[in-house]
């Protein structure tokens, strides 16, 4: 089994619901976004194009971050291909961040408050209980929140108002994600790095 996410760029409206849901669910610190929507304009008026590109950990088949990790804190689960970080093993060397071609790993180096001097929100308090300063963190397909169970989907998939995200088993040729990738020519970001990401994108045309 290999969990895979497919993002339909034609459907994505760049509403940031996935980004907000991820943050609310995982209680990540200020400035840390495991999932985010990057917007990029191109072309010249009147022939312009706006791309909404949701980015998260690609849970690569051959993850560069796992290779460079000196402690084994980053590993890929053989049973489902999800790449995880064991915060207790991480020493905060950030080699994984340098090795990741997608810039989706985050270093939690200091506690920051959303409302300085006015106390912590309940979400911030939760985050401080969950995460250790000095460690790297990233998306785990909501594994730590939901656990792998039948028909489970990460929160970002659940909340997408236009249904632009799909989640399933890439190794199952009959799964929805496999069909979408083959029928609509799904592609991966930066294939030249040879990491074989498990997040695919469907073209926006």
């Amino acid at each position: 089994m290999r969990y895979c996410m497919v993002v339909d760029l034609k459907k994505c409206i760049g509403c940031y619901a996935c980004q907000v849901a991820c943050k609310a669910a995982n209680a990540t610190s200020k400035g840390i976004h495991w999932c985010r929507v990057v917007k990029q304009e191109s072309g010249k008026y009147p022939n312009v194009r706006l791309l909404n590109l949701p980015i998260l950990c690609m849970h690569c088949e051959d993850p560069a971050c796992v290779r460079v990790c000196p402690t084994g804190a980053t590993s890929k689960r053989p049973e489902d291909g999800i790449v995880t970080i064991d915060e207790h093993k991480c020493i905060g060397c950030r080699a994984c961040m340098a090795a990741c071609p997608y810039g989706v790993r985050h270093y939690y180096d200091k506690e920051m408050e959303y409302f300085p001097g006015k106390g912590l929100t309940s979400l911030e308090e939760l985050g401080r209980q969950k995460y250790s300063i000095g460690a790297v963190q990233k998306c785990d397909f909501c594994l730590s929140l939901k656990g792998v169970q039948e028909d489970y989907v990460p929160f970002c998939v659940e909340v997408c108002p236009v249904g632009a995200r799909y989640f399933g088993d890439l190794e199952d040729p009959n799964s929805e994600v496999s069909h979408l990738i083959s029928q609509r020519k799904g592609f991966q970001l930066n294939p030249e790095f040879g990491t074989d990401p498990s997040v695919f994108y469907l073209p926006d045309y």
Binding site: T71, A73, C90, I91, G92, C93, Y107, G134, A135
Partner: peptide
Amino acid sequence: LGRPDKAIRA
């Protein structure tokens, strides 16, 4: 390092 106390793990 983020956690120098665990550096030996390197």
